[in-house]
């Protein structure tokens, strides 16, 4: 953690974060979901103005979804991973599109793949999947193999033991 980043972490102490240092320039901050926007605002005003990525992780055992905002600073190259957990059964969160307009698309994507609703962002049309008709596919309880079997018929291979044996013995050319 560089000194500027540790200064910033000190500023953020009021939000009661759980800080993990990942490496020299990368820090993960885990906070409760109601303080996320305030933390993001603080970080943005302190130079972490670039929202590199916004993504989601499904913790099916904890019955929680984890939202991660990765912020990057063009001044010192530091990276903050702001993470929070929300309820998996009723996934709802606030939009950050006022802070970063590009977040619209990340939120659409997360809505599409995890089913998280973002309050304040009404534009939740599907972005990548065309004509999707199942539960959000990146949730852990979605079975892609089952879906694939149902939708995309597989090739049937019939095992011909005698032919394989003949090939093995070199009688015919396979």
């Amino acid at each position: 953690m560089t000194s500027s980043m540790s200064n910033l972490v000190k500023i953020l102490e009021g939000f009661n974060p759980f800080v993990e240092e990942i490496d020299e320039k990368e820090v993960k901050i885990t906070i409760s979901s109601d303080k996320v926007v305030a933390v993001l605002e603080t970080l943005k005003s302190n130079g972490y103005s670039h929202l590199s990525l916004m993504t989601c992780i499904d913790w099916i055992d904890d019955n929680q979804l984890e939202l991660v905002y990765i912020l990057f600073s063009w001044k010192n190259g530091g990276k903050f991973l702001v993470s929070t957990r929300i309820d998996r059964n009723d996934p709802k969160f606030v939009t950050v599109k006022e802070l970063w307009p590009v977040a619209r698309f990340y939120e659409r994507e997360i809505h599409e793949f995890f089913g998280v609703e973002f309050e304040g962002n009404d534009d939740m049309k599907p972005l990548f999947l065309e004509l999707w008709d199942e539960k959000p596919p990146l949730r852990k309880d979605f079975d892609p193999r089952d879906y694939s079997r149902k939708k995309f018929p597989d090739r049937k291979y019939e095992k011909d033991v005698i032919k394989e044996a003949k090939i093995f013995r070199g009688e015919i050319n396979g």
């Binding site: 596919p137 979605f142 892609p144 193999r145 694939s148 995309f152 018929p153 597989d154 090739r155």
Partner: peptide
């Protein structure tokens, strides 16, 4: 394209083209 290859169980990748 023959049988899905390593993507045989993907939710978005088809398994055989001649279908």
């Amino acid at each position: 394209t023959i049988n899905g290859g390593i993507y045989f169980d993907s939710y978005s990748t088809i398994n055989r083209l001649d279908y």
